[in-house]
Each structure stands twice: as structure tokens, then as C-alpha cells.
Computed example of a mutant assay.
Amino acid sequence: MRFASAIVAAAAAAIASAQVVFPFAPEGPCVAACTDVAGKSFFPLYDDVDANGPFFFTSLSYTFERGTPMAIAFMTKAGTCMNDCPMDQQNAYRASYYPKYNWYQANKPAPLRRRA
């Protein structure tokens, strides 16, 4: 229930906030399909494409809340799928991971921030 509350709060924050600019290009259709299928298997409203959508930050949390059970399960499923993607897309995903991670950590709404 606590996670569901965080999802609702994050969605409300995203709707209430100014336009979000996610300054990263997609790594390719295969990688995008892998993250979408993996994400939707855990969260049917998963959407890591529409930066101004109500579930964008919640969706990114599956990738960038490192070490959490949901991130581990998501990354395992998405990563297994990505093994079949073209190498240039895999390399693009690896190269963009930390810049995206840093952007996510700096821009995620308060409900997704870890409490100390």
C-alpha cells in the first residue's frame, strides 16, 4: 500500500509541475521494447517515454532506485531481454545509464526521494 501511495503522489506531482525535459535520446527500438515489456510486467501503467506523463518518474524508478527489490527484478528482466538486442543499442544503453541515473536523482519528485 505504501508503494501505491508513492505512485499516486508522484503522479500528482508530475501533473502539477512544469514541463519536464528529459534530455536523452532513446537507445534504440530493441532496448526500448525490452524496458517497456519488463516495466509493464511489474507496473501496467509503466511509461518511460512521456516525460510529462503521470507515471514517468515512477517508471524510471524501476531502473534508477538501485538496490531495491523492484529495481533488481526489473533490471534482471530487462537486461536478459537486452542480451538479444544489437550491440550498438546495448552499448548506447550502458553509456547513457549513469547520465540518466544522475538526471533522475536530481529531478525525481519528493515522494520518490529516500528518507534518511
Rank of each mutant, 00 (worst) to 15 (best):
K77V: 03
A32S: 14
T58V: 10
E27M: 11
Q105K: 15
C81R: 02
F74I: 00
K40D: 03
I7R: 15
M70H: 15
N83S: 10
N107I: 00
F56V: 05
V21I: 15
P29V: 05
A13K: 06
G79I: 01
C34I: 06
G39N: 03
Q90L: 03
A71H: 15
K40S: 06
A13G: 08
E27A: 08
I7H: 13
A4F: 11
V37I: 05
L45W: 14
T58W: 14
Y104T: 03
S41Q: 12
Q105Y: 12
K108E: 06
A92P: 00
Y62G: 00
P23T: 05
K77T: 03
S41H: 08
K77I: 01
P44L: 02
A16G: 04
A4N: 14
R115W: 11
Y101A: 04
I72Q: 12
M87G: 09
K100I: 04
Y46L: 01
A32Q: 09
A6C: 10
C34D: 00
T63R: 09
D48M: 12
F64Y: 05
F24H: 04
D36G: 01
R2V: 11
P111R: 04
G79M: 07
E65Q: 13
T76G: 14
W103Q: 01
S41P: 11
Q89V: 02
Y98V: 04
A33E: 08
V21T: 14
V21A: 07
S96N: 15
S61I: 05
V49E: 07
D36N: 10
F56C: 00
V31I: 15
T63I: 15
F56N: 01
P44Y: 03
T76C: 11
F24A: 02
